[in-house]
């Protein structure tokens, strides 16, 4: 049955209202404070490390994001761990919170489609995430210029921008996940806990589980060296289900121009290669494109899940 009118009527109003709500919410302020403090800490530690070790290193600027000083992890791994928290905080009560406040039926009685509510909420959240990430990115670049005393090169900026875009998709996955849980469960506390469990599993435990799973699925035969490769591929394939691991690979590839592959490399493939020499920016992006596409697909998949469950929901609760 064809319905009249655009499903996008009102999306802008809803997105802007959601964004304004997030910008002023205490929840968002707290988590941004946490992210900012850890980011500054990580970059400050990285600067200390860079100053003591290599004064003549190339790509000094990108090292800001990747170099770690024990016991602190690097900026990029901090982001991979903490940014999902920010996205979950923005999305976990998006839909069931409206039911709880009894505002949902009133909003749906306005001349808009249901589609607009969910799309508006997602875009509003994404908008806030983008603002937060750009701020963070500029802050880090500024700190780098200030402490290292050298401006980033064009290639550095290009890699940084692609990294920024990939980070937005990565947080988008978690936002869509939280949104999906908020449509499926009736209470915001349940959806927050569910989203946080997924976050813990994928950011911490997944890396520990996948080797075990891989050794069960494709065991190593000591007389056949190819089974080792098979097991490695299985493990990597499983690991890449986690958006956190995809994001980690993207960060390594983009922020370290000398890295050449995210998979296994054979000696034959290295023939003629200048070990330690950088890849051109476009080549790095080409290598990591499947991972970025994977994040986008994950984001769309989670959003579709939320969308289908929301469309089927009874307004009356």
């Amino acid at each position: 049955m064809k319905r009249k009118g655009s499903p996008l009527t009102g999306v802008t109003s809803i997105a802007l209202k959601e964004a304004a709500d997030h910008m002023t919410s205490a929840r968002m302020h707290l988590i941004m404070l946490l992210v900012l403090l850890t980011a500054i800490g990580a970059v400050y530690a990285a600067i200390g490390q860079i100053k003591t070790t290599t004064a003549q290193d190339d790509y000094l600027f990108l090292k800001l994001f990747t170099v770690a000083q024990q016991p602190l992890p690097s900026f990029s791994s901090f982001m991979g761990f903490l940014l999902p928290l920010l996205a979950i905080a923005l999305g976990f009560d998006a839909v069931n919170g409206e039911f709880g406040r009894r505002t949902m039926s009133r909003i749906l009685a306005q001349p808009i489609y249901r589609d607009a509510v969910l799309i508006g909420k997602f875009l509003g959240g994404l908008m806030v995430l983008a603002v937060a990430l750009v701020t963070l990115w500029l802050l880090m670049v500024g700190l780098g210029i200030l402490f290292l005393g050298l401006p980033p090169s064009g290639a550095d900026v290009a890699r940084g921008l692609v990294y920024l875009a990939a980070t937005l998709f990565y947080t988008g996955v978690w936002l869509a996940l939280a949104l999906a849980f908020s449509t499926i469960t009736r209470s915001p506390a349940t959806s927050a806990l569910a989203s946080l469990s997924v976050w813990l599993i994928f950011t911490i435990f997944w890396q520990m589980i996948t080797p075990l799973l891989a050794s069960v699925i494709s065991p190593i035969n000591p007389y056949d060296p190819m089974t080792m490769l098979a097991q490695f591929n299985t493990q990597q394939g499983l690991a890449r289900i986690s958006p956190a691991i995809l994001y980690g690979e993207i960060a390594t590839m983009l922020l370290d121009p000398t890295s050449r592959s995210v998979g296994p490399i054979f000696m034959s493939q290295l023939q003629g290669a200048l070990i330690g020499s950088p890849l051109p920016t476009m080549q790095s992006i080409k290598i990591i494109w499947p991972q970025i596409a994977g994040l986008i697909a994950g984001m769309l998949f989670m959003f579709t899940l939320a969308y289908v469950s929301f469309q089927r929901q009874e307004v009356r609760s």
Binding site: M1, K2, K4, A109, P111, I112, Y113
Partner: peptide, 13 residues
Amino acid sequence: LRDPLAVKAQVGY
């Protein structure tokens, strides 16, 4: 069901 926006524009709930 077919024309919800036109209906909801004139009907308040």
